[in-house]
Design a protein around this nucleic acid. Structure first.
Lengths: 214, 214
DNA sequence: GAATGAATTGAACGTTTGTTTTATTATTTA
DNA sequence: TAAATAATAAAACAAACGTTCAATTCATTC
């Protein structure tokens, strides 16, 4: 036996990525064997090495794509000319939407950093830091123009990110709450968390209406 | 070679637990080998099997102890006769103090649930649920007596737990902020998150003073 | 000081691991 | 239709894995 009928490199590679994300999310990177992954894809283990030189290359590729996608998604969603409150709202909404839509790779990116080599770890962390910087910027702007009351911007940024990323730990889309309801709740909690006052909340609601109007 | 001079079962077992928590926290359960663990303890791998029948027994033991300790710690710290706001404050403070003091086993308990067998997983989850129930109770009480403004108690409880457990992801005790400062920040954020109003905040400050006085 | 039990070593077991190599077949190109 | 290339299977590799077992030495008790 060798090449099979209907075999297609691109399809195999894509199927490998999907299956790997799912398996690693469920069992962990170390617990997933290349043979197990290959079986899921419907191929022999050796075939995977045509697309990913090593197991760790596969992991890095998943993480890298996840982070690139996250940053890209925020670049596309972020409003340029709005006030801090409205920008924070967009940030939270985009973050939740992105992560809920990518539960598997989110789990991988959050849990398997320790399986990366030094250089690759620092590459991924660099992207992560850049992303977090966007949030800190929003918070700082909000403090400066009086929209937020925050004691420590860096600490608050970490708290918010932990909170809104944690959605995927308990949230199941087919249960009691919809993504929209969950997002609305987290938006409310976030705005309170940063001490956005009522007056400010009114203002950002107005901003949002203007933004959506065009 | 066989029994070594000064060897002591209890000491070896305790050292094994500590080393295992540290190694699993750093490299993951699957990535830690029994030989690696034994080397850390200063013993041969076979010796570990005198104290833990299998590798998974060791993991379960760590998690079990962690959860038991957490619940025990809350039982000892929780104030009986105070209002929701004061009780919430105690909950958050105790949670952060406990987890910061036990970074390693916290990491293990949060990351390695998937390596447990079905029955053991459900045992640990049962404890976890019981603990979370305590928080939900506080939140519900606060909603009922008007101290908190909360849309969804279950969702808010998860958000708070994710947020305050996340401390150990970024916090290092030897850096910019002390545990006390960090805790104070998280307390403020939590109280705002649940919509505790100023009037209520005053009240719980008074409660706290009374609690500490008596 | 002999007997008993506790603590550990060292070697070995069968599996499984990530990965490489070689051969073979399917598809595409000329 | 022949040649070239892409995609895979099958088998094999050494290394590492969790675990077991018998032998051996330290510590304690009588």
């Amino acid at each position: 036996m060798a090449r099979t009928v209907g075999s297609d490199g691109e399809r195999t590679q894509a199927a490998t990525r999907d299956a790997a994300a799912a398996l690693i999310a469920r069992h962990g990177y170390e617990a997933m064997s290349m043979r197990q992954l290959a079986a899921e894809v419907g191929v022999q283990a050796a075939a995977l090495y045509r697309y990913f030189p090593t197991k760790q290359d596969l992991l890095y590729s998943l993480m890298r794509d996840h982070m690139d996608g996250l940053i890209e998604s925020w670049k596309a969603a972020r409003p340029a000319a709005l006030g801090p409150a409205a920008r924070l709202e967009h940030f939270v909404a985009n973050h939740i939407a992105f992560h809920v839509a990518r539960r598997h790779s989110t789990h991988v990116s959050n849990m398997e950093l320790r399986s990366l080599s030094r250089e690759r770890l620092s590459q991924v962390l660099k992207l992560r830091t850049a992303y977090e910087k966007e949030l800190r910027r929003i918070l700082r702007d909000g403090v400066e123009d009086g929209a937020f009351r925050i004691d420590d911007v860096a600490l608050t940024a970490m708290a918010i990110i932990q909170m809104i990323t944690g959605v995927i730990v308990w949230f199941r889309p087919d249960e009691r709450l919809s993504v929209e309801e969950v997002t609305r709740n987290y938006l409310t909690m976030t705005m309170r968390l940063v001490g956005a006052n009522a007056k400010q909340e009114e203002r950002h609601v107005r901003d949002r209406a203007e933004f959506r109007a065009g």
